[in-house]
Design a protein around this nucleic acid. Structure first.
Length: 743
DNA sequence: AGCACGCCGACT
DNA sequence: GTCGGCGTGCTC
């Protein structure tokens, strides 16, 4: 070509000009600073907004992301450092995700870099996956001696595929040393595989789906929501109504449209059964994402999500920050669950931020629950969410019949905890070969121990809560801070022996009573504090599922999602527990818990029965449960909150003010107090969770404000969001404020 | 003197 | 979030 020489000269000139005028870019770094920092781009490196880089920061190297907007030209050029590495194998973070990071940072009052940190949670994912060491049969080669183990290996390899050493040993049912032997003999050869092949894509048409007319109608509405862009739907269905099947249809629709889908679950324990159901419906497993995933799998999923190889993710709240290539749907299952809230570091509600992410990227979000949160019901009633009700069980089984047992009149004798009527029902259920569940939200043997002689009560030395006796462990335990001590023989105050008495029941004590009265029944305690951890829990849940236990005594973990097909009877040992708490959400939490736990009865078979042992059968929360009238509960609760001056969206309006400057934080607090009318000033108080946060927190001065009805917190926040800058260095919004009104 | 610990500001 | 500098107070 004739222009060869000229273009070379031009290139040189251009290169020189570039070298003289060094390029600088904004880089967001994972530290608590308010803005992106500025770095030089090394010659020859190519970066764009979204590119993931490594940069020097102080004395260390950190991950960062090239950010939007002009770099800060006011920074002293002598201070500027160079990007030390460009991760060109990793996909740049897309604009939608970057906007989401900024939105969450703005909302939670966290530094944007701290939110970015939640995105960059797998350093391994930024490199190409290292090749996998494997073995393959060498055509025609044979071992000197054929043994049964060797034959099994060669048989497994007969399809000509390469296997990993451990995978092959496992598949052939031999030890890995057999494979080493065959390698040494030159029958097998080592090969390198290019990482893991992508998992097969879920097939939206894999299974024949048989929906009830009610389910089909909701499924059709969810499919239609894709046409509306950013619609939020609330599936409000009784326990056993088949919400999962319905939202699976929304996932199928997302897949058919070539979009990715994300399912958020409140806790890891629920993923197991979800995976099985998903596989039945879509023919393959979704990718999993939560804190217990191994680094390798984590990296694979992160990369797969970014490249689009992974189509569906099921995960805990942190999955919300995965770098999806083209996310088209988020499902938030058990949307009422408090586990969606993160209280430390960046304090956010994954349910609310899911709605935000859907809004920013214009895709549908589905919230599902048998007991929706009050705020979601309000959002639905006020037209922000579409609400779909599934009032009946998909199996056709009728809902359990629920009865109150008035403990003032029909209670058990002294020192016993189960009323005669409940015992009779347990005996019947046992006789017909079905399961009973006794629910008591109290771990251990007894919540309080005292001395009969001198009245000494065992109290935690650190937090003034009663110490709970755990008889299996022979300990007194504080459920607040974890402090424990050995159960003493004598009273520490008056030294009397045989004088300590247990007051009130825990699950261990109820189990003792059950074993005493039904010695021939197989009883099982399900409580999170028993030794053996998650593995044991999984085993025992399976035992109950398979009908290997007759009477189960459990704490609140039995209320969550597990399917117990043989469970016919549920007895709530103390239905009043939780109603008396000072927590403004006590009624809601109790309603949800009791509705979920009684919903276990006869879920598959029908004919379930529930009993609530109570001293206050007239309490409106219990009445709503007894009457099977969920709407009555929500009506009552929304009215009660309005009367208490809580905001109409049903959530506590709270601000946590914190910062290094105590005077500034207090000054701002006083300004807030002045802004509220004189008759009901802003109350400055510290509920238990805020107090705990204060003790554990790194900030030195912190103040919790609950704004009463007169204070226009919403208006203030709206103004603040629109007009920046922050009133103090570190003002933190509590996770309980609903972002719906700001979208 | 030597160092553990907590506090505090800086980090581009 | 993490590091380094600095002051305090205690031990070898």
């Amino acid at each position: 070509m004739s222009g060869d020489k000229t273009s070379t000269v031009l290139d040189d000139l251009f290169g020189e000009a570039q070298a003289e005028r060094e390029t600088i870019v904004s880089v967001l770094v994972p530290v608590a600073v308010p803005t992106a920092y500025t770095y030089k781009v090394p010659a020859g490196a190519h970066v764009q907004p979204g590119t993931i880089v490594q940069v020097p920061l102080g004395s260390r190297q950190v991950l960062g992301c090239v950010w939007d907007g002009a770099p800060d030209a006011a920074i002293n050029p002598k201070k500027l450092k160079s990007i030390s590495r460009v991760y060109d194998k990793a996909r740049p973070l897309l604009p939608d995700l970057r906007r989401f990071v900024e939105w969450v940072a703005n909302w939670t009052l966290a530094a944007p870099g701290m939110v970015l940190r939640m995105v960059l949670r797998s350093e391994e994912a930024l490199e190409d996956e290292p090749p996998l060491a494997a073995v393959r049969r060498i055509e025609g080669a044979a071992p000197d001696r054929m043994t049964p183990a060797r034959a099994k290996v060669l048989d497994t390899l007969s399809d000509g595929m390469a296997w990993t050493r451990s995978g092959l040993a496992g598949a052939a049912g031999v030890s890995a040393s057999v494979i080493d032997g065959l390698l040494a003999q030159g029958v097998l050869e080592p090969v390198l595989l290019p990482g893991t092949p992508p998992t097969p894509k879920p097939d939206p048409d894999f299974a024949h789906v048989d929906l009830t007319p009610a389910q089909a109608e909701v499924a059709a509405s969810l499919r239609a929501a894709f046409e509306r862009g950013n619609a939020v739907s609330l599936i409000d269905g009784v326990t056993g109504s088949g919400k999962t099947e319905v939202y699976f249809e929304a996932i199928a629709e997302a897949l058919k449209r070539g979009r990715q889908a994300l399912v958020l679950l409140p806790e890891i324990a629920l993923t197991e059964q979800f995976l099985r159901r998903f596989e039945k419906r879509f023919g393959t497993f979704p990718a999993e994402w939560h804190s217990e995933i191994t680094p390798k799998k984590r990296a694979r999923t992160w990369r797969g999500v970014a490249s689009g190889d992974v189509r569906v993710v099921i995960g805990a709240r942190s999955a919300l920050f995965l770098p999806f290539e083209d996310l088209g749907l988020i499902i938030v299952d058990e949307e009422h669950d408090a586990a969606f809230k993160q209280d430390d570091r960046v304090p956010y509600s994954a349910r609310d931020m899911a709605v935000v992410r859907g809004h920013l990227s214009r895709f549908p979000v589905v919230l599902a629950s048998a007991t929706p949160s009050v705020e979601s019901r309000v959002n639905a009633e006020q037209g922000r969410y579409a609400r779909y009700v599934l009032p009946e069980r998909a199996s056709g089984a009728e809902l359990p019949e629920i009865r109150a047992i008035d403990m003032r009149q029909e209670g058990p004798e002294r020192g016993r905890w189960l009323a005669p009527e409940l015992l009779k029902a347990i005996a019947q259920t046992f006789a017909e070969g079905s399961q009973s569940l006794l629910f008591l939200n109290r771990r251990g043997y007894a919540p309080l121990t005292l001395c009969r002689t001198c009245g000494h009560r065992f109290q935690c030395p650190h937090c003034s809560a009663w110490l709970v006796e755990h008889r299996f462990q022979g300990r007194l335990v504080c459920h607040h801070c974890g402090h424990f001590e050995k159960m003493p023989e004598t009273c520490p105050t008056c030294s009397s022996t045989q004088s300590l008495v247990a007051c009130g029941p825990g699950v261990e004590r109820v189990a003792e009573e059950v074993q005493d009265l039904f010695p021939q029944a197989r009883t099982l305690i399900l409580s999170s504090d028993l030794p053996g951890g998650a593995e044991r829990m999984k085993r025992e849940m399976k035992l109950v599922e398979d009908g290997e236990a007759d009477i189960v005594i459990g704490t609140q973990l039995v209320a969550k999602g597990h399917n117990f097909p043989k469970m016919k009877l549920v007895g709530v040992v103390d239905a009043d527990l939780g109603l008396a708490h000072g927590d403004p959400r006590a009624a809601e939490k109790t309603f949800q818990l009791l509705a979920q736990v009684t919903g276990r009865a006869g879920r598959v078979t029908g004919g379930g029965r529930g009993f609530l042992q109570t001293y206050s059968p007239e309490h409106p929360v219990l009445k709503a449960l007894l009457d099977q009238d969920r709407d009555a509960f929500y009506r009552m609760e929304i009215e009660a909150r309005q009367a208490a001056g809580l905001p109409p969206f049903g959530r506590m309006a709270a601000l946590i003010l914190s910062g290094p400057d105590k005077a500034a934080a207090e000054g701002f607090a006083r300004a807030l107090v002045r802004a509220a009318p004189a008759d009901r000033s802003v109350t400055v108080l510290g509920p238990a969770e805020a107090a705990l946060a204060m003790v554990r927190g790194r900030h030195r001065y912190r103040l919790l404000l609950i704004a009463p009805r007169q204070f226009d917190l919403q208006g203030y926040l709206r103004h603040w969001l629109a007009n920046g800058p922050r009133p103090t260095g570190a003002l933190r919004l509590q996770v309980d404020i609903d972002p719906q009104h700001f979208l």
